[in-house]
């Protein structure tokens, strides 16, 4: 039987305020701050892809901020997350160090990879982000091995594998899920299903729009959720991850979302993808940030002016981090050769 989702990919649904009951105020504000920071950081990157100051390929995740933030809030520093080409949000959700990201994107020594990686190769070991790479699906087995290492460490840590719906068309997803299932590995597979792989809609690539069927086939517990509801995902993950830690089991989260920008760069790319032009405006009304901010203001957690101030403060930090990153130094010439071997 066909495993499909309908409501979750309908942009006219899930536009209202999100349910924030039962979550501490400070945590809610933390979620909002992280998402605003990620949004504004990526807007800054977008601006400078357009200005030409950024040359390396930048895959922006504007519109998808809620997923990385929800995951980051159930992670320990000793957990190990691996990302892919669109991973700025995963990185910033764990460490709000926009300077480190900006310097990296500009190829500067102060960047998280000392300028050797750019947007597509970012790392932050101290905060549990073990690396991102742009070869689609490549970190899925790597994260699976990190789960094996976590299991061997016997400390209740987990690994996290971030990937998109496109990566589910790589055979290695099947191999990895099979392995995690048969070997009981604590790997949290997070599929950010934004319905597009580059320009091509999932309906033109797969016989079903929901990738969780792969988890089901491998006897892995899973859920399909609104990926633009940070609180809903946080609540679900909190209980699921707790059980992963105690029982060494994998879990598969499929979070439906939408990227506001094209596959790579600053443009909207409404003219390159089938269905994309018609749906982008509608999806912008399912904005994960506005929905949380509206809830917080409506429920009196935050006033309108406090929210304005939060935005203003973050914008200032981002502007100053960008300016500092522009002035930072490039790696020394010998770095080209000295980093090949240990």
């Amino acid at each position: 039987m066909k495993q499909e989702v309908n409501e979750l990919i309908d942009p006219s649904k899930f536009r209202d305020r999100i349910d924030i009951k039962g979550i501490e105020k400070s945590l809610l504000v933390d979620m909002l701050r992280k998402m605003v920071l990620i949004r504004k950081a990526e807007e800054k990157l977008s601006e400078h892809v357009e200005s030409g100051k950024i040359k390396c390929p930048c895959h922006l995740g504007i519109g998808q901020e809620a997923i990385g933030v929800a995951v980051s809030l159930v992670m320990r520093k000793s957990d190990r997350a691996f990302g892919a080409h669109r991973s700025h949000s995963h990185f910033l959700a764990l460490n709000e160090n926009t300077y480190s990201l900006f310097a990296e994107v500009l190829g500067k020594y102060d960047g998280c990879s000392h300028g050797m990686g750019g947007s597509m190769h970012i790392v932050d070991n101290d905060n549990g982000f073990k690396g991102s790479v742009p070869i689609v699906g490549a970190t899925i087995p790597i994260a699976t091995g990190a789960g094996l290492a976590a299991k061997m460490d016997k400390a209740g840590d987990i690994s996290i594998s971030y990937f998109g719906d496109g990566a589910c068309e790589e055979g290695v997803l099947h191999e990895s899920l099979n392995m995690a299932s048969i070997m009981n590995l604590p790997v949290l597979y997070v599929c950010e299903n934004n319905l597009f792989a580059s320009h091509l809609h999932i309906d033109l690539r797969q016989p079903s729009n929901s990738t969780s069927r792969f988890a089901k086939a491998h006897h892995i517990n899973y859920n399909t959720v609104d990926g633009n509801d940070v609180v809903g995902m946080y609540k679900l993950l909190k209980s699921e991850v707790e059980s992963m830690r105690s029982s060494n089991t994998p879990y598969y989260l499929e979070a439906f979302t939408y990227r506001w920008k094209g596959h790579v760069g600053h443009r909207d790319d409404i003219d390159v993808g089938v269905k994309r032009g018609a749906q982008l405006d509608s999806w912008k009304k399912r904005d994960p940030i506005k929905r949380l901010a509206d809830s917080l203001i409506y429920e009196g957690v935050l006033t309108e002016s406090e929210y304005q101030y939060l935005n203003h403060e973050i914008q200032n930090k981002i502007n100053s981090d960008w300016e500092k990153a522009e002035l930072a130094s490039f790696p020394e010439n010998e770095f080209l050769i000295t980093q090949v071997y240990s």
């Binding site: 490549a138 899925i140 790597i142 994260a143 699976t144 091995g145 690994s159 290695v172």
Partner: peptide
């Protein structure tokens, strides 16, 4: 592929 990747992942950890 997955077992080799898992070996790489464990080595990173």
């Amino acid at each position: 592929l997955a077992t080799t990747g898992a070996t790489v992942g464990a080595s990173i950890c």
